[in-house]
Amino acid sequence: MIKDFTEKNIRNAILNKVKPKNLNKGKHWKGYIFLNDKLISKVKLPNEHIRIMHENKSSYIAKSLRLTHDQFNELIECTLSGTDYYKIQQELGV
């Protein structure tokens, strides 16, 4: 079962972690997901609202990302990966 998340959280997680390419920044942002230079899927990003997106909608996004419901929950719950955090620290210096 997919948990309730805000549209903003879902959007940010996708932008920051999935990093879709060829972003179509129209009314509804759409991006394309490449792996080893091959297009494997596409995703439509929610808007930057703080309203909650329930499973009946977020399940479509999970499917676009080719994730199980559990995997989707894990993607959204951590907005910053460990790798990202240590990269920032390194740029700031000791």
Binding site: N22, N24, Y32, L39
Partner: peptide, 25 residues
């Protein structure tokens, strides 16, 4: 919105060569 998505997808898929498309695309 569905209409727009159909057009956008059609254009994106035709902008890529066949060898750059995975199974689903």
């Amino acid at each position: 919105e569905i209409r727009e998505d159909v057009i956008d997808l059609f254009e994106e898929l035709n902008n890529l060569s066949k060898d750059r498309l995975g199974t689903l695309p």
